[in-house]
């Protein structure tokens, strides 16, 4: 079963393929490679002229690797377990501090309706839903809360600014 992708607030076909580290480059299509492969083969991958995104482990310091990945059209951040929230911080740094404008994709075990609202707030723009998720319910969950207290990477106007107005 192929994963369901939410992007731009709707269900979209995934135009990227995640490439295993030992797999050869397929002839066509957009690709996502692991960060380690990107590091090892960057010159060759760039020379291939293909559209290539990079998947970053959640243990990596975003500021440290930014120069290597800032120009990528897609960065995927991973939630290897439901309660492992490290990628939230990575996402905010990318989206807010480093003004990353490409596709910021959430992958892994936490990409479910019960967390997706937080992910949107932290700057993720696309979501590879975990298997078994109902995409309509996930979309609805994005709007579960209408009045955030904090300013973050989305464009929701936080309560403290509304009160200042």
């Amino acid at each position: 079963m192929s994963t369901i992708l939410l992007r731009n607030l709707r269900v979209e076909a995934d135009d990227y393929t995640l490439l295993a580290d030992d797999a050869a480059l397929p002839a066509t299509g957009k690709l996502i490679v692991s960060y380690s492969r990107w590091q090892a083969e960057r010159e060759a991958l760039l020379a291939s002229g293909r559209v290539i995104g990079v998947k970053i482990p959640n243990t990596i310091d975003i500021a440290g690797v930014l120069p290597e990945i800032a120009d990528r059209p897609l960065i995927a951040l991973d939630f290897p377990a439901f309660p492992d929230g490290r990628a939230y911080s990575q996402a905010r740094l990318l989206a807010e501090r480093f003004a990353y404008k490409g596709e910021l994709r959430a992958t892994g075990k936490a990409v479910v309706r019960d967390q997706i609202g937080f992910m949107v707030r932290c700057g993720f723009t696309s979501f590879e839903l975990r298997e078994g998720q109902d995409p309509a319910a996930c979309l609805a969950a994005i709007h579960e809360f209408s009045v955030p207290y904090q300013q973050a990477a989305d464009h929701a106007q936080p309560v403290f600014l509304r009160r200042r107005a």
């Binding site: 309660p83 707030r121 207290y149």
Partner: peptide, 13 residues
């Protein structure tokens, strides 16, 4: 309290 409530980045520490 308000800052911490449903803080999007720090709910999964």
């Amino acid at each position: 309290r308000q800052w911490a409530t449903l803080h999007p980045e720090f709910n999964w520490l």
